[in-house]
Amino acid sequence: MDKLINEFSFGLFFWQLLIFIGLVLLLKKFAWKPILDAINERESSIKDALSSADIARKEIESLNEENQRIIKSARSEREALLKEARNTGSKIIEDAKQEAKDSANQLIKQAQESIESEKRAAIQELKNQVAGIAIQIAEKVLHNELENKEKQNKLIKQLIKETKL
C-alpha cells in the first residue's frame, strides 16, 4: 500500500482525468451519439423491413388460400354444370326419341287407317263396277237370248219346266 501511494503521481492523474473526461465528451458528440443513432436507425429499419416482409408473406399466403378456394369452387361449379348439361342432353335426346316414336306410330296408324279406308273404298268401287258389269252382261245375255220368238218361247218353257208348282 505504501508502495502504491509512493508510486502515485499526481501529474499523471491530473492529465489522465482531464484528457479522459475531454475524450468522453468529444467522442460523445462526434462519435458515440452518431454511431449509436445510426445503428439504432438501421436496426429499426431492418426490423420494419422484416415485419413488412412478414406481412407481405402472410398476405400472399392468404391470397393463395383465396385462389385455391376460388379454383376449388370453380371446379365444383363446372362439375355441377357439366352434370346438369349431361342430364339435360340425355333428357332432350330421350324426349326427342319419344316424340319421334310417337309421331312415327301416329303416322303408321294414320297410314294404316287411310289404307284401310282406301281399301274399303276400292272394294266398294269394285263391287259397284262388278255389279254394273254384271248387269251389263246380264242385259247383253238377256238381249241375246230374247232376240227371236222361238228362243223366247223356249226359255219360257224351260222356266216353266223348272218352276214346279
Binding site: 503521481s9 489522465q16 484528457i19 468529444l26 462519435a31 452518431p34
Partner: peptide, 22 residues
C-alpha cells in the same frame, strides 16, 4: 510524461477512428 503522451496519442487515435466510423 511518457504516460501522458501515450494517453494523448491513444485519445487522438480513438477520436479519429470513431469519428471516421461515425
Amino acid at each position: 510524461t511518457k504516460g501522458v503522451v501515450s494517453i494523448i496519442f491513444t485519445s487522438i487515435i480513438m477520436f479519429f477512428l470513431f469519428k471516421s466510423l461515425a
